[in-house]
């Protein structure tokens, strides 16, 4: 059962993240701490064990489905914000467009060879 033991690794790293947050009061989620720890561990070992790959690949593929229950909640608060929605939407859409353009422009300038893959 390689996938199962890989899954246990992922859960353990997440739990370690929780412990780290408990003792350091860092304002970061335990998932992110676990992710960085996993990356560091793999870098030290120099390869990805089959068990971790077997558990991580399907989970990453399911990421979109896992955030769906939270996303659906939006449709149930629309009523509470009557009248404010236009301003919020304009701010989010324009703000995101500006920041995407800035990010890409900045990266292009900094890297300098935009068309090299």
């Amino acid at each position: 059962m390689p996938a199962l033991s890989g899954f246990l690794w992922l859960i353990s790293y997440w739990l370690i993240g929780e412990v780290v947050i408990h003792f350091t009061a860092l304002p970061i989620s335990s998932g992110v701490i676990g992710m960085l720890l996993l990356c560091a561990t793999l870098a030290v070992r120099g390869r990805v064990p089959t068990s971790i790959a077997a558990a991580a690949q399907p989970l990453i593929a399911l990421l979109a489905m896992l955030i769906m229950p939270g996303v659906v909640g939006v449709f149930f608060i629309i009523g509470e914000l009557a009248g404010q929605w236009t301003a919020i939407l304009i701010a989010l859409v324009l703000g995101t467009l500006f920041s995407v353009v800035t990010t890409l422009w900045l990266l292009k300038r900094l890297i300098g060879r935009p068309n090299v893959r």
């Binding site: 992922l10 993240g17 676990g34 996993l38 399911l62």
Partner: peptide
């Protein structure tokens, strides 16, 4: 499962 799935992102990050 979002917790372990976020941790799993450490794998492509390493690769």
């Amino acid at each position: 499962l979002l917790g372990p799935a976020t941790v799993a992102l450490g794998m492509p990050l390493y690769q």
